[in-house]
Each structure stands twice: as structure tokens, then as C-alpha cells.
């Protein structure tokens, strides 16, 4: 039995000055209407709005990968995101997606096992997903055909594996923004 970890949300602060709404161009204002999971205009969004084209395109893709209906179950996508965020060292993303995984599964067992670095405590499906997430997130990728075979052996079909590849890969992207352009602080 392992004790449960308590993960508090972190605050993110950029290393560069974000775009101020009062000085934003029409294109920046238009781009900022599309925010991750449609929340308020955060410092993160205003930082990325310095380059509105890439911000807009990536946010649309990000939201599709993490929230589109059907296919891979939401908690599995969150686990892929968490595995990538741990490898890439993005504490902010790791906490957000660990909390989301716990909310969706109404359990913090998986998240606790990972934060205590005890992946051997995971069930076969979570273990296959987490191991693939870690190996695909290495640079270069260390994932092999055995990882895909492990995902199929726990019942995942091609569409679900494709969803998982995208969930992990989009965090190879998101982590390289969030952990590079700013830092996370508690409370």
C-alpha cells in the first residue's frame, strides 16, 4: 500500500513579456479567442500570441487530440500526456494532466504510483501506455515494435494506438513550449 500524493495546481510565469491585450494586433486578438479547453486568456496564451499563426494552428490540433469524441479513452490520453511530461521535465504539464487523470478515473492510484516512481504498481493496460509514452518521448525515440505489440495485447485497436501516439507527441510539443518559455511555481 502506498500513500496517496497530493498534487496542487502550479502557476506558470513566462520568461518573456506576454502580449498585452491593449497592444495586441487584430490577428493576435483573433488567435487568442481559441484557448486550450476554452478558459480565460492566460499569461501562457498571451506569450504564445507573439506568433499568432502557430498558436492558432497548434491549439486547434491540441484540443482535437485531447478532447475529440470516441477512440482512446480520455484517461488514457491523459496518461500518455503525463508520461511525456515527466520525461520532458515539464512539471506544470505533469501536474495538470496527473490531476485530470485522477479526476477522470476518480482515483489517484495511478498518479500516486508514478509520482513515487513505482510504475511496477500499474495494471497491464496503464503499464503498456506509460512505458510507450516514456520511450516515444525520448530523443531520439526509443519506442519499438514490442511497445505496439504490448498496446495491442491489452486490447487497443489501430485507431486507439493512433490516438495515443498523438497524445504523447503533442506533449513532445507542449512541454517544449511550457517548460522552455517559462517556469512553474506553487501556490
Amino acid at each position: 500500500m502506498i500513500s496517496s500524493v497530493r498534487l496542487k495546481p502550479l502557476n506558470w510565469h513566462p520568461y518573456i513579456a506576454p502580449v498585452e491585450l491593449s497592444g495586441a494586433t487584430p490577428e493576435q486578438l483573433e488567435a487568442m479567442k481559441v484557448t486550450p479547453s476554452a478558459k480565460k486568456v492566460s499569461e501562457y496564451v498571451r506569450t504564445l500570441a507573439h506568433d499568432p499563426e502557430s498558436y492558432l494552428a497548434r491549439t486547434i490540433l491540441f484540443n482535437a487530440i485531447m478532447y475529440v469524441e470516441g477512440g482512446l479513452a480520455r484517461p488514457d490520453r491523459e496518461l500518455g500526456a503525463l508520461g511525456a511530461s515527466i520525461v520532458n521535465g515539464c512539471k506544470f504539464c505533469a501536474v495538470v494532466h496527473a490531476r485530470r487523470h485522477a479526476e477522470l478515473t476518480k482515483s489517484d492510484e495511478v498518479v500516486t504510483a508514478l509520482y513515487l516512481d513505482k510504475p511496477e504498481a500499474l495494471g497491464p493496460r496503464d503499464a503498456a501506455i506509460y512505458s510507450f509514452a516514456r520511450r516515444l518521448s525520448a530523443a531520439p525515440s526509443e519506442a519499438t515494435a514490442d511497445d505496439i505489440a504490448a498496446l495491442r495485447s491489452v486490447g487497443m485497436d489501430d485507431c486507439e494506438v493512433i490516438d495515443l501516439i498523438h497524445a504523447i507527441s503533442i506533449f513532445g510539443w507542449a512541454n517544449r513550449l511550457m517548460h522552455v518559455l517559462g517556469h512553474a511555481e506553487s501556490g
Partner: peptide, 21 residues
């Protein structure tokens, strides 16, 4: 700085999706 960061992040996304497929 933001555009460079997005480019870096994109290629790291692209190589992973391609590797997985």
C-alpha cells in the same frame, strides 16, 4: 523566440508521430 520555440516543438511532434506510425 516564440516562433523558434514553436518550430522546435513542431519537429519534435512530427518525428514522434512519424516514428509511432
Amino acid at each position: 523566440i516564440v516562433a523558434l520555440s514553436e518550430l522546435i516543438a513542431f519537429v519534435n511532434f512530427q518525428t514522434r508521430v512519424a516514428a509511432g506510425l
